[in-house]
């Protein structure tokens, strides 16, 4: 359980981190909370020659509100998202999602940027980021670019973050009037990861759906938007939820492992999608 030897670099700015990334290329990894990277290094599944610790780049840990958007620095821990008064007031679904991640030790160290950039197929944040249509800011030596959540998760552990880039900020639109969101997960009893997790964000116009966004994690190799569920609900009233939720696993190659078969995961996705949608509607009406 000892990692292979590596060089440790502690930087105090994004600029310095980017310089080290371009210097060492493939050999360097960014260290944020270290709750995905370090376990893999201890088992020597990952053996980066250089670790670039961005823990001292304090401005990356900020959570702020600006022009109707909530801006969360990549280094914000799950605990700070969970307890932030801004997030609790404007994006309660995200605070709830953060509160369900792992255990208190993981939430104290793990970061939103680290979780999203690592793209574990069973991580919680990706479902919420998809349903909330988050926008990721990626910084590279040439400047910044923004990537929408829908274009961010490419495959197992694979995201739009290119070599030499750092995910520095995640931006969310605050939930407006008539909009409610819920994140529900079936928790893996040992790891705390989502066997399946569903984030549902709905906007109602009168009694009918105006906009529905469903993000699902844990089911396949990457988190995804359940567009067939969303389409089935367009313009409908809430009595259409049960039928629509039955499409939650459509077209997804569900993961099987020793804990949960693919069939079980697909069924969890359908049931949790229905429950999340029903609870999201109840929130708007409350």
């Amino acid at each position: 359980m000892f990692p292979a030897s590596f060089e440790y670099h502690r930087v105090s700015s994004v600029k310095d981190a980017l310089a080290l990334l371009s210097q060492f290329g493939d050999e360097a990894k960014i260290l944020a909370g270290g709750h995905s990277l370090l376990p893999m290094m201890k088992l020597r599944l990952a053996q980066p020659a250089h670790l670039v610790d961005i823990g001292a780049v304090h401005e990356l840990a900020q959570i702020q509100e600006q022009g109707g958007r909530i801006l969360i620095g990549g280094l914000a821990t799950h605990h700070s998202v969970e307890t932030s008064s801004i997030v609790k007031a404007k994006l309660p679904i995200l605070a709830e999602c953060a509160a369900l991640i792992g255990d208190i030790q993981v939430r104290n160290r793990g970061t939103i940027g680290g979780s999203l950039a690592h793209a574990d197929p069973a991580a919680d944040y990706p479902a919420a980021a998809l349903a909330l249509e988050a926008e990721m800011t990626l910084e590279n030596p040439g400047g910044k670019r923004k990537v929408k959540a829908a274009d961010f998760f490419l495959d197992l552990l694979t995201t739009a973050v290119q070599a030499g880039e750092i995910l520095t900020q995640v931006s969310f639109a605050a939930l407006g009037a008539g909009t409610g969101g819920v994140y529900l997960k079936h928790r893996h009893p040992a790891s705390g990861f989502a066997t399946v997790g569903v984030a549902a964000v709905v906007t109602l116009k009168g009694t009918n759906f105006d906009k529905v966004r469903v993000g699902i994690t844990g089911l396949g190799a990457k988190a995804f938007r359940a567009s067939s569920v969303e389409k089935a609900l367009a313009g409908k009233a809430s009595d259409a939820i049960a039928a629509a939720a039955s499409h939650a696993a459509d077209g997804v190659d569900a993961t099987s492992d020793t804990y949960a078969s693919g069939e079980f995961r697909a069924e969890l996705a359908r049931v949790y999608t229905r429950r999340a949608l029903e609870q999201a509607v109840a929130r708007v009406k409350a």
Binding site: L45, G220, A221, T255, D257
Partner: peptide, 17 residues
């Protein structure tokens, strides 16, 4: 091996990829 310890959840996904 260690691959199984931490990667159990990922191995199927990695094979498919």
């Amino acid at each position: 091996g260690p691959l199984m310890q931490v990667g159990q959840r990922m191995i199927e996904g990695a094979s498919k990829m």
